[in-house]
Design a binder for these strands. Structure first.
Length: 818
RNA sequence: GGGCGAGUGGUGGAAUAGGCAGACACGCGGGUCUCAAAAACCCGUCCUAGCAAUAGGGUGAGGGUUCGAUUCCCUCCUCGCCCACCA
């Protein structure tokens, strides 16, 4: 059998398609319903398109192609998220300007994506590093600043002492610099912060307007993590002061035995300062002051990551202070310890060692009493706790005065009410979500469009002066001071204040990676617009994104940030009022592992390059194989042999269709009709692997029979989303005009299927004993007669009563006999 | 520690409003073609007994609901991903 010649037909159709504009999305098309199919745009690395890109984009492409054939006006765009460290590192190493590398890389990516036959509307391409694009990224920042959602603050950031560069959290892996492996430390730098926490509630509540898969929705909710806390005031014995302790579990209050403060807690700096007012009120020995001081100094040396290592031995210092628990009047010793983090709650925690592992460890170390106040369903009240016991879902209160016998949730409410009524504390909602540190000390990013004036303070660059173009620099290397490489460009940095005209300096930090990708889906709608982000009418027509395909690694960062920015744009009226959320549906794609089942990496030598595979097997085989490997959301290992199996199928398909005759043999039409139904359903729900399996199954079934040209055309059409080149070639060979990719998806011919007999299994006492063929609309009586006539059934029911006869129409016959 | 998800042949995986477990593919065994190999094609392939028809067992372990459970419920075990001294 001859293989189809991918090397010949691929360039042929590529050339034709390019001139035809088959995949253009039509703004305001009135005849068709719109469908916005979005797939995450890539970072165009120097290595070119990797197999993960090819896989994800093929999955999106199949969907877009199906929707197009279903008659939708499909918008399926592509672009490049091209700011970022790799281009900068490459520039440092090779001395080539990042923009030059980006240009080369995007050209490679575009060529590869065209070869893989992705049906993108290339007229809408965007690039986040294009000044006409980042002008609007900067514009959004200015708006954030104007609305008080961006502010500058001194914050400790991750710092690599070896690279001399600030690191984003995501660039710190296991406490080490992702690039050089050096231990990351903290450094205080003045940072732009964006108040995403103002949107915490809306980011949770807005999910109701979307149809994300549960996994994604939960990831967002858990990341934001909205919880009811209560801040309780404990008087400090011998003073008029109070320590404000925060907790979500006041029900365990009767079990508290000590109070612990973060080393950064304000009270601690008073303790370490002998001249502070605190020392006038209460005596603290010089020895303790020194110990606390030393402890704080020690803590500062440690990186945050170091402090957060699990199961680290608990350390701390007694402050000689006592906090009074007003609920029962007990006096509890106050300690300073580094396991309490100043960024969580009030930075002061009440220790309940009976029900919290960390508190338990601390109590063991300092010989503090342990008390159980909750008993779980196991009835265990021994004082030794295991990790997480405080989380008991169904616990009941004991040793807790007026809470005794209550379940923990009720007790929590009761205690919160009680404390608030007494005026000893206050409920407060807190989130795990933190404000977004928006400054990066890198060169290759969007300049933050702000100017610092001696007189006026921070002033945004006026809209008509945007974009603030990233200047050419001699050196991209980071500086010793933690400033961006832009800081040395004095003639760029020194400028005039837009407000008063006085001397001022530009912000030299750049934006994080996420900034450009926050809103790119809007720019696709109107990528040439120089008046606004995008035309309001176009946004009204196309938004929201109907389906958004991406990786799980973006569920909490990119997806949350971009929803936040969209909600902000909605608030300022920059996007349509009728569309409060940007993405309707979110679908996660899977991951392809190397042939060894390990994550692909150069060092392992298990990298599969899509270009190579396309050359060897042809694009259609590669695409079909990737979609056949397993469920679209799954993690799958590459397998060359399975790829060859798909190649066999594609070749057989080609040969079979080319042999199409005038008339189909018996059964062929029914098989094709059934297949259309199956493939249609599967493609709509991203079940590509079973769609392809069904095509293989059908081909196996009909291969020995003749197929009519009419049926052959249908086969070609339903395979078209997977194998664009071969099907286009076959479409031509079958004598059809135009492109198969702009035809209408075939309809299921129900009349063909209607007279088909179905096989019904017959179960006796739960065991299948035979089958019977009936037409789908047959009566129960007729089925019963037919079933009883089956030899093996007769044998099993002979001489027995039939207790029950159940016919589930079209499904099964069940006979129950004693 | 928390959250989410998953355990099915030698392998990737099918089948869940409860209804023939193992589709499809790989691999393996046998065969056709060939001087030979590759490719291609054909037959077989969950386990046990049997030439076969058929019978018994079988979806991580144990229990439950049901005429019927891979699917639903309870207990437990294992693995994966994300997050994490979140008080």
């Amino acid at each position: 059998m001859k293989n189809y010649d991918s090397k010949k037909i691929e360039p042929k159709w590529q050339k034709k398609w390019k001139s035809q504009g088959l995949y253009k999305a039509e703004d305001f098309d009135k005849d068709k319903e719109k469908f916005y199919c979005l797939v995450e745009f890539p970072y165009p690395s120097g290595e070119g398109l990797h197999i993960g890109h090819a896989f994800t984009m093929t999955g999106a492409d199949v969907y877009a192609r199906k929707k197009r054939m279903d008659g939708y006006n499909v918008l399926f765009p592509m672009g490049y998220d091209a700011f970022g460290l790799p281009a900068e590192n490459y520039a440092i190493k090779m001395g080539i300007h990042p923009s030059v590398a980006v240009k080369q890389n995007t050209e490679t990516f575009r060529r590869q994506m065209e070869e893989l036959a992705f049906s993108f509307d290339w007229d809408r391409e965007v690039n986040t590093t294009d000044p006409d694009y980042y002008r609007w990224t900067q514009w959004i920042f200015v708006k954030l600043f104007e609305k008080g959602l961006a502010y500058k603050e001194e914050k400790p950031i991750n710092w690599c002492p070896s690279c001399k560069i600030g690191l984003a959290n995501e660039e710190v892996v296991d406490g080490k610099c992702e690039r050089c492996g050096a231990e990351a430390t903290k450094k205080n730098l003045s940072q732009w912060i964006v108040k995403i926490t103002d949107y915490a509630d809306r980011l949770i509540d807005g999910l109701e307007q979307t149809d994300f898969v549960k996994k994604v929705e939960m990831a967002q909710v858990n990341w934001i993590d909205r919880k009811q806390w209560i801040d309780i005031n404990y008087p400090i014995k011998g003073t008029d002061r109070e320590i404000v302790v925060s907790t979500t579990r006041p029900d365990t209050n009767f079990g508290s035995t000590f109070v612990v403060l973060a080393p950064e807690h304000p009270l601690v700096s008073e303790i370490t300062n002998p001249d502070s007012d605190l020392h006038k009120e209460v005596d603290i020995s010089d020895e303790t002051v020194k110990k606390v001081k030393d402890y704080v100094v020690e803590t500062k040396k440690k990186s945050e990551v170091e402090r957060m290592v699990i199961d680290r031995k608990k350390t701390g210092v007694f402050t000689e202070l006592y906090a009074v628990n007003r609920i029962d009047g007990r006096e509890m010793p106050v300690y300073v310890t580094d396991f309490v983090l100043s960024t969580i709650g009030t930075g002061a925690v009440v220790g309940v060692p009976g029900h919290d592992m960390r508190d338990f460890e601390f109590a063991q170390k300092f010989d503090l009493p342990v008390m159980r106040v909750v008993v779980g369903s196991d009835g265990d009240t021994s004082p030794v706790t295991k990790r997480g016991q405080v989380q008991e879902e169904d616990g009941k209160m004991i040793n807790s005065g007026f809470l005794d016998g209550m379940d923990i949730h009720k007790a929590t409410e009761k205690m919160m009410d009680y404390i608030e009524k007494k005026g000893w504390g206050k409920r407060t909602i807190r989130y795990h979500l933190r404000d977004w540190i928006f400054s990066r000390q890198h060169y290759w990013g969007e300049p933050i469009p702000m100017v610092n004036c001696e007189k006026c303070g921070w002033v945004p660059v006026p809209e008509d002066q945007l974009p603030v173009v990233l200047p050419q620099v001699e050196k991209y290397e980071p500086t010793d001071t933690g400033e961006s490489p832009l800081a040395v460009m004095t003639d760029w940095v020194n400028t005039e204040c837009p407000k008063c005209g006085g001397p001022a300096k530009r912000e030299t930090d750049t934006m994080p990676n996420w900034a450009g990708s926050d809103w790119y889906f809007l720019r696709y709608l109107d990528n040439q617009n120089d008046k606004e982000l995008a035309d309001m009418k176009k946004m009204e027509y196309w938004m929201p994104v109907d389906v958004y395909l991406g990786g799980d690694e973006h569920n909490t960062l990119h997806l949350l940030y971009s929803r936040f920015i969209y909600q902000f744009l909605w608030d300022i009226g920059a996007v349509p009022k009728s569309i409060p959320e940007p993405y309707y549906r979110r679908v996660s794609h899977g991951v392809i592992l190397g042939p060894d089942g390990q994550r692909m990496s150069k060092s392992r030598g298990n990298v599969i390059v899509p270009d190579d595979m396309a050359k060897e097997y042809g694009v259609d085989v590669l695409r079909t194989y990737m979609m056949f490997m397993g469920p679209f959301e799954g993690t799958m290992a590459w397998n060359d042999n399975a790829l060859k199996g798909v190649q066999r199928f594609v070749n057989r398909f080609n040969t079979y269709i080319q042999g199409a005759a005038d008339k189909s043999d018996k059964g062929v039409e029914v098989a094709v009709s059934k297949l259309v139904r199956k493939v249609s359903d599967d493609l709509d729900s991203f079940q590509y692997n079973t769609a392809i399996a069904a095509m293989m199954e059908t081909l196996n079934e009909i291969e020995g029979k003749k197929i009519s040209k009419k049926n052959a055309k249908v086969m070609v059409q339903i395979f078209a989303p997977f194998a664009p080149y071969l099907t286009e070639e076959l479409w031509e060979i079958l004598g059809c005009k135009g492109s198969v990719h702009v035809t209408s998806w075939p309809k299921v011919d129900e009349s063909v299927l209607a007279d088909e007999e179905i096989e019904i299994p017959i179960q006796i006492n739960g065991k299948v004993r035979g089958t019977v063929k009936v037409s789908p609309d047959v009566s129960e009586k007729a089925v019963r007669e037919a079933a009883m006539a089956v030899e093996n059934v007769k044998k099993h029911v002979e001489g027995k009563d039939i207790k029950k006869f159940i016919y589930v129409p079209g499904r099964i016959v069940t006979i129950v006999s004693p």
